[in-house]
Design a protein around this nucleic acid. Structure first.
Lengths: 257, 257
DNA sequence: GATAGTCCCTCACGCTGCGTGAGGGTCAAC
DNA sequence: GTTGACCCTCACGCAGCGTGAGGGACTATC
């Protein structure tokens, strides 16, 4: 029977000798036999088990769990695999997203395009995104996702120049809001009217009809669906959201009057 | 100036309060100000810095390095980003590969197909793969990668039934080899001849010509290019490789005679 | 059979990035 | 003045090893 020492196993498998010691310590991978001199000797079975361990470790499963999985034959491997598969697929997607984000960042640093701020954060924190969407639904009702989809598609269909113009408007509007908020300008001030007017035109265009009485919903919809919004909203904290809501309501009231 | 407490920042950013304490401790993210009561207060700048931190953390950059990056304006962000991008892209690819692997595993467990053993390990350890390829080149010369590509394409062009047959043959052959190795059967024994004969036919078919005198190269080529081989080779250790080489040489000698 | 070089062992402490209390102030509201 | 929800500072714990330190064991060579 061919037996291998730690070093050999380490070389074959790519893990460190220390790691093998560690796996022995925690009972994850015991050597087939131990020599009189205390040397660890591994056989084929241990190598195969090690492969299994590495596969699972690759999936970021804690070593203790790996041991449980490998040692418990009743363990539902299939279900575990499905779970892992979904986790991995999500990760892969997120990574791909991050790659695109970085590509845009690089392009931006090269001055090739003016990157939209918030896209920096795409791919970060899936839970955060889910939480945000839940918040949207809670705040604006179950139709919100559909509305968002609508305006997203609409947005995508714009020409680059139109997108740029809209982004500029959005930025101005947000800056003005933030300033107003910091300086204590009341939400129903008319100071923002010119900007809001331009914004209203955009909304009309986006919805293919005159800005409706429920302009608040329309504005919020468009606005919230814009990638810039998420991070800006987050960066400015909840106070901004309240202010924003108030401003929107005031705007809606004036429209209705 | 709007100031936020730890809890608020935590909620907005999705990190824990403890993490914020930690970031403060290690000087990665200091609060804008500290109250007389010892409370930490964060402003907009800190939130933006936090976003930057999270982006970098997402890329698995150690916190100390993130601090260095954010604090050193001379740091070549562009180059760092490119590096990170490549790392991420590799990771994304590896993850996608693992997902496919798991899909096949699941299908296999469902009895939908006989999965090829070694595909379990696709995606594991990129360095290992690179090392293995280096080993191939060293052992068989610089043409090896080209040969491998050739037989890979050839393999892909086979019908499913043909693939299955070949896989079965390969498995039998390997099992027989492994058994022979364990039982001390000498490498030039004729015990494996029937299998090798079938294998030779395959090689002829794969190369579209009679099995050449340098059958060893041909066989090894085909064999080593097969996905099963890598992990089996690894699992059996170096001894197997030696045995395999000897068996191949003996086979080549008999062919030549 | 001495010597050198390369392996092997067992402690044992260190590192990152926080989680998780313990023990105790603070603040706003009722 | 008393809740309740915050905030603070220690300080220990955890995974998954890396990295010596200190000391045998094995192999080859002279």
């Amino acid at each position: 029977m061919k037996m291998l020492t730690v070093k050999q196993v380490a070389k074959i498998s790519g893990v460190s000798v220390r790691a093998l010691h560690h796996y022995d310590e925690i009972g994850l991978l015991k050597p087939a036999s131990t020599g009189r001199n205390g040397y660890r000797y591994y056989g084929r079975d241990e190598l195969l088990r090690l492969q299994q361990i590495l596969l699972h470790r690759e999936l970021d499963i804690p070593l203790g769990d790996i041991r449980a999985i490998l040692d418990d034959p009743r363990f539902d491997q299939l279900e575990a695999l499905r779970l892992q598969r979904d986790k991995l697929a999500a990760e892969a997607k997120r990574y791909a997203q991050l790659v695109r984000t970085i590509d845009r960042t690089i392009a931006d640093l090269n001055g090739e395009s003016a990157m939209r701020n918030a896209e920096l954060y795409k791919g970060i924190s899936a839970e955060k995104q889910a939480e945000y969407e839940a918040w949207l639904v809670k705040k604006y009702g179950g139709d919100m996702p559909r509305h968002i989809e609508t305006s997203k598609r609409k947005y995508e269909s714009l020409s680059q120049a139109e997108k740029d113009q809209l982004n500029t408007d959005l930025k101005e509007l947000e800056t003005a809001w933030a300033d107003a908020m910091r300086n204590g300008v009341p939400a129903d001030s008319t100071a923002l009217d010119p900007l809001l007017g331009r914004f209203r035109d955009w909304v009309s265009a986006m919805w293919n009809r005159p800005c409706p009485p429920d302009a608040f919903a329309g504005l919020a919809d468009l606005h919230l669906s814009h990638p810039d919004f998420v991070s800006r909203y987050e960066a400015l904290g909840e106070g901004f959201s309240e202010y924003h809501a108030e401003a929107m309501k005031a705007y809606a009231r004036r429209l209705a009057a």
